[in-house]
Simulated assay, not measured.
Amino acid sequence: MIATPAGSPKAGPRTVTPTVETVLGFVNTRADGSGRRELFGDGESFAAWLAEREEFNGETVATDADAAVARELRDALVTVLLAHSGDEESLGEPLLRAERHLRRVGSLYPLATVVTAGGVELASPQTGVPRVFGTV
């Protein structure tokens, strides 16, 4: 649930929130048949992608291992999103593996509740690349 300050317009059913934009931006980084290239191929390419994203404060220090973690997180999210859209190949064991992976990521990169006069949000208390993974 997204808390909105008094007087703010409420999000409609088709409104894309900044949080959704972050997840969609993250999952849409893999290569595909239409010529899109892999954006998390190594630490350098992952760092370049992060540097372009305001929500990550231009985080640019990333290793090849960070890029591998990003690809695994992304692939798990893609599997879950495809399963929710009715993709038969994503159901069963692939979905169970993806859900297990996302639970593990959630425990490694936890979120904290931040309460302010303007509302409530979940935010990563970590810094650097771990904050990126928690935010996603």
Rank of each mutant, 00 (worst) to 15 (best):
M1S: 12
T4E: 06
P5T: 03
P9L: 02
P9S: 12
K10D: 08
T15D: 07
V16T: 15
T17H: 07
V20S: 12
T22F: 11
V23W: 09
L24S: 13
L24H: 12
F26S: 04
V27K: 11
T29V: 08
T29P: 06
D32L: 07
F40H: 01
G41W: 04
D42I: 00
E44T: 11
S45C: 06
S45Y: 05
F46Y: 13
A48N: 10
L50M: 12
L50E: 02
A51E: 14
E52H: 14
E54Y: 12
E55P: 04
E55T: 07
N57D: 15
N57W: 15
N57I: 08
E59D: 07
T60M: 14
T60I: 09
A62H: 07
T63M: 01
T63K: 05
T63E: 04
A65Y: 13
A65P: 01
A68Q: 15
V69E: 14
V69P: 03
R71P: 09
E72T: 09
L73N: 10
R74N: 08
A76C: 12
T79I: 12
V80Y: 08
V80S: 07
L81V: 04
A83Q: 08
H84F: 10
G86M: 11
G86E: 09
G86H: 03
D87Q: 13
D87K: 10
E88Y: 05
E89R: 14
L91H: 10
L91E: 14
A98Q: 01
E99T: 10
R100P: 01
H101S: 12
L102N: 03
G106N: 11
L108T: 15
L108D: 15
L108M: 14
P110M: 02
P110S: 03
L111Q: 03
T113A: 06
V114F: 04
G118S: 14
Q126N: 09
V132N: 01
V132F: 03
G134K: 02
V136N: 02
